[in-house]
Amino acid sequence: MTPRNPLPAWRRYPLLYASLWRNSVVREMQFKTNFLLWIVVELLWFGLQLAFMSVVYAHTESIAGWTRWQVVLLVGCSHFVQQVFTAFFFTNLTEISEHIRTGRMDFFLLLPVNTRFLISFRKVDLGAFINAATAAGVIVFALRRLGQVPSFAESLGFAAMCFAGLVIHYSLMFLFATVAFWTVRAQGIVWGYYNLFNIARVPDGAFPPGMFRRVFTYVLPMILVANVPARVLLGTLRSPWELLLLAGIAGACFVVSELAWRLSLRHYAGASS
């Protein structure tokens, strides 16, 4: 039976997403203390990263050409992209292997919506928005200490590059999560991805040319995701190609993750069989 008056997709999906948001808010507000404590945990870890850099700069003037406040801005950018990613996607992606193990994936596949949309956007982590805001605060503070005011074009470029970084994080982790269709127990792989975040806050110039640098620039572009947005704001971009590179890799990662997703679905035989 076809539903009466099916809404067009451009109206159906925003409505659907709005109700997913409502669910998330209700869920989070059930455990208010826990919600606040998680924000404290994230703040502590962000503080730890900043503390590390400030200890290092107590012993040096610059690292690979980056001054103290430039690196603070870089750490801020890394945390900002990571927290926005956490807000929209992280919980959802860690749950994919659980969906497969428990058979809930079969149920999602039967719903009359795009399954990738549903499993990617199901839950929203509200605390992460607050953490993203603190990261933005640190970025603004660092800019003021540097006495720099980014132009409108630079701010726009920054936003675009953060979006590209978000797409990269999302696509790569989604790609890793779909491995669960083959091994079921992919939790470890997903958590391993968390380690990758850590190198995003290291100034790009610190990585000498070689395998490590190439892999983490072109294959898993962790060196780019925070460094490029930071350089846009600082006006230290070495060539406009860096922007195109990050945007291009973001697009490529998304396409690869979509192809892997389709392949996984074709391979998937359901939970009970």
Partner: peptide, 20 residues
Amino acid sequence: FRAAAGLIPLTGTLYLWKSV
């Protein structure tokens, strides 16, 4: 896998110190 993945951020930290 966990032990190997942990070496990635360690490499980043070591490169950071080397450039210091």
